[in-house]
Write a protein that binds this DNA or RNA. Structure first.
Length: 529
DNA sequence: CGTTTTTGACCGGCGC
DNA sequence: GCGCCGGTCAAAAACG
């Protein structure tokens, strides 16, 4: 990331087209061999930096937003809420807690975080420990609970301590042995057709190992997130033994840093899936998933670095809401509860989601047949009504303005089987799923499209906001409405995650640039007003 | 020359 | 205790 020389005038310099180009830059860099494409990537990266800088500028212009956000995630100006959709996910404020600075022990890390101030933080971890939940410290993992969670992170700079350190810790503090009873890190496994070594999910990964796994002729590769040096997130990538065109990517852990916007799609999806897996009722009742969504809000607030970021983690579930997955099961293999999102199932008539495909694995299986990839269009909310065309994985990304404010995406369906990429046309109202699965968006959409999921989320938000977040300034009904709208946006915009900076700027700052087709999907679509 | 990948060694958990 | 297996480490090699 370079481009430190942007001046404040960059706001005017960013035209609408660039604005939605930048979000694509990281989506396909692993797959691009072509020199021209590489150079274009660099250009796009520069545009992303511009946009990030742009966010900071806007944030500086509106310090009250940060203050409000620190009060509560719904603490926007009420007048604005009539125009804006209040996702309130992952806004970074200049008023970040000082622990940010503590984490930035050297200049490099600090700059990295500065660059990512506008990015989102999403994680898989939900702490099942009731005490931690009460504190709003959310963590799925037993191991990573060392140093994770809102109440603990200040002492921890190494989120995923080396095994030697872990061993030492375990030997020192036997009192924590109770955690042994808890499952290990929750994993979210995503099956998707992919002809490249890894799915490009927007994050930066470094390979640290490769092993032959039993029962699979293909080696399993181990990657760790390198966006932040201390990020504990790991992923495993392995080809499916039965179908080599299917890539199984398993995510584990929570990013302890703001995510690049292009990575929020995956993070959002895995977070939602993990949230469902972590439902207290799921363990004892097959197929019945407790509200993933009551877990979306972390009440005591601060996310690791970003106090306003939405962490898909379990807030106290005072009133569990449940919804049903026809074919789900839990895998506790290796003590790792795993939820599998199967994005390879053939399309069905349903475009929402939880289809009735039988589980392929003895884990929580969600089969999605809908279609397109947030891997490529990971920030369509940057310009959801403007649209672009992208390819899943290795195909070239091109852009195409769509007059009607619609979203046009070429998913590069089943790239391993050819390169005839059929475009998917998505209107504001629904998604035509004419092609086969495109991974993460499908998952996100499937999860968030579930009416019960929406209802549960809305209720959870209502409870949360009504009780705590807004000092009584917002009416519950208003919040509920917002929550429902947010959910719709989550689905329609494919990732369910949007920077609230986008929210803040969408109406007042950017209307002139985009007209009705704001690059930020934060203006309320007509049909929802 | 810094970063990333490769790959054999090592470790811990688990079942027998 | 032993062996198997999954996962990680770290030195060397490769890469840009």
């Amino acid at each position: 990331m370079e481009d430190d020389n942007l001046d404040s005038n960059s706001v005017e310099e960013i035209d609408s087209e660039k604005a939605y180009v930048f979000c694509l830059c990281m989506c396909h860099h692993h797959c691009m061999k072509d020199q021209n494409l590489e150079s274009r990537e660099k250009e796009e990266a520069r545009e992303e930096n511009k946009m990030l800088k742009f966010f900071d500028i806007l944030q500086q212009d509106k310090p009250e937003d940060a203050a409000n956000a620190n009060k509560g995630r719904f603490g926007h100006d009420e007048n604005e809420e009539s125009e804006l959709v209040s996702l309130c996910l992952g806004i970074s404020s200049k008023g970040k807690p000082t622990k940010d600075e503590k984490m930035n022990k050297n200049g490099t890390e600090k700059r990295e975080d500065e660059d990512m101030e506008t990015r989102l933080v999403l994680g898989l971890d939900i702490n099942l420990d009731p005490e931690d939940q009460a504190e709003g410290a959310i963590n799925l993992s037993t191991e990573s609970s060392v140093g994770e969670g809102a109440g603990k992170e200040e002492e921890a700079t190494e989120m995923w301590p080396p095994s030697k350190v872990l061993r030492t810790m375990k030997s020192v503090d036997k009192s924590e042995a109770s955690q042994v009873d808890q499952p290990k890190k929750t994993r979210v496994s995503i099956r998707a057709r992919c002809d490249t070594q890894t799915m490009n999910d927007g994050c930066q990964w470094r390979k640290y190992g490769q092993k032959m796994a039993k029962g699979n002729p293909c080696p399993r590769a181990y990657y760790r997130c390198t966006v932040s040096p201390s990020c504990p997130v790991r992923k495993q990538v392995q080809r499916c033994a039965e179908d080599m065109s299917i890539l199984i990517t398993t995510y584990e852990g929570t990013h302890n840093h703001p995510l690049p916007m292009s990575a929020t799609a995956m993070a959002c999806t895995t977070s939602a899936a993990a949230s469902m897996l972590q439902s207290p009722s799921l363990g004892s009742q097959h197929g019945l998933v407790n509200s993933a969504i009551s877990s979306i809000i972390n009440s005591s607030g601060p996310n690791y670095y970003n106090p306003n970021a939405l962490n898909f983690s379990t807030y106290q579930v005072s009133r569990p809401h449940q919804f049903y997955f026809p074919n789900s099961s839990i895998s506790t293999l290796n003590s790792h509860p795993t939820i599998t999102l199967d994005l390879t199932a053939p399309p069905t008539s349903s475009n929402s989601s939880f289809t009735t495909c039988m589980p392929k694995y003895s884990s929580t299986n969600l089969s999605f047949s809908s279609g397109f990839s947030p891997l490529q269009c990971s920030m369509p909310h940057q310009k959801p009504w403007g649209g672009y065309i992208g390819y899943f994985n290795s195909g070239p990304l091109t852009q195409n303005r769509n007059q009607g404010g619609n979203f046009l995406l070429n998913t590069g369906n089943q790239p391993s089987l050819g390169h005839h990429h059929q475009p998917i046309y998505m209107s504001n109202n629904n998604v035509s799923q004419q092609s086969s699965p495109d991974p993460i968006f499908a998952a996100t959409k499937a999860i968030t499209n579930n009416p019960k999921f929406q209802s549960a989320l809305a209720t959870a938000l209502t409870e949360y906001v009504g009780n705590e977040a807004c000092d009584g300034r917002l009416r519950e009904n208003h919040v509920l409405e917002s929550a429902e709208l947010n959910l719709k946006l989550c689905c329609e915009n494919s990732i369910g995650c949007a920077s609230s900076k986008c929210l803040n700027m969408s109406s007042s700052s950017l209307k002139s640039q985009q007209g009705n087709s704001s690059i930020f999907p934060l203006t309320l679509p007509e049909q929802w007003k």
